[in-house]
Design a protein around this nucleic acid. Structure first.
Lengths: 155, 155
DNA sequence: CTTGAAAAGGCCATGAA
DNA sequence: TTCATGGCCTTTTCAAG
């Protein structure tokens, strides 16, 4: 029966019920266990233990309120592509250091000439320019910035 | 005293307490009113009415669980820049139609040659290619894709 | 995994300031 | 807008099948 052995630590797969629960909780992070139980066709206790398992396994990372960014004074968003000034210098620690800047909301490494792509939020053009200076200093890279004119949707 | 007149409908500003509540709820969407009340130094009832007001005013748009994308079989993310094939053709309805594609997680209009920038999530290279075809058909635009090699953080 | 029940705690409407 | 209170609902934990 060796064929049934599987590695589950890295990417635990979800059964149908778990997928339903995850989907519902993504749509409404405050859904009650009773409501989830009804949709899943299970008891509340069963759903409760499943949700807790999803949380402890890291499938569900957390819950958050989604807030209108303009109200928070973060009217300006921009995508910043980083192109290393010297491609031979390793840049592995750059993301960790960029994480220290609150204005940097996301950090990816991507295919193409630019090594890193960032999503930056700032309150004004002045603030954005200041953040860009900090980013350049940290990353030792050139920046190419595309300012967001309109956010149609973010899911 | 005309100088004190202001338009508040578009961007209602928040007082200090509201800002604190919003911040806490962004960090933990399931924070209890009691916990919020303690941090704010107010009664539960006061906090309750404030939170409800933030929700009805649209400052808080909703609550959601954040889920590990790899577990959902969405291991592949990509940024897609759309450059209109014919710049004279209006493209205002494109975002609304792209919203119909579940794989398109975000849609922005940005400065630069590319009119739109999309964040796309797909389960595989095959799926991504299929989504790109759909996007091109909908938007009547050329696509330039940067595949995400690693997501260092998303806040 | 299910049911059932008891206890604890949070939510919400109300009244009063 | 604030606070205090009681009723109702939800969650949690247990036991037993």
């Amino acid at each position: 029966m060796l064929g049934t052995l599987r590695l589950v630590a890295a990417a635990p797969s979800l059964d149908e019920v778990d997928r339903l629960l995850v989907e519902e909780l993504m749509a409404d992070g405050r859904a009650t266990l009773a409501a989830l139980a009804e949709k899943a066709g299970l008891s509340v206790s069963a759903v409760q233990s499943r949700v807790r398992r999803l949380e402890t396994r890291g499938v569900i990372r957390g819950y958050s309120a989604s807030v209108d960014p303009t109200v928070l004074g973060l009217a300006l968003s921009a995508f910043v592509a980083l192109t290393p000034l010297d491609p031979t210098v390793p840049t592995e620690d750059v993301p960790d250091r960029l994480r220290g800047l609150p204005a940097v909301e996301a950090c990816y490494s991507v295919t193409g000439a630019a090594g890193y792509l960032l999503l930056v939020r700032a309150g004004s053009a002045d603030r954005l320019e200041h953040v860009l200076q900090e980013i350049r200093a940290i990353s030792r890279a050139g920046t190419h910035t595309a300012v967001v004119l309109r956010t149609f949707f973010e899911r």
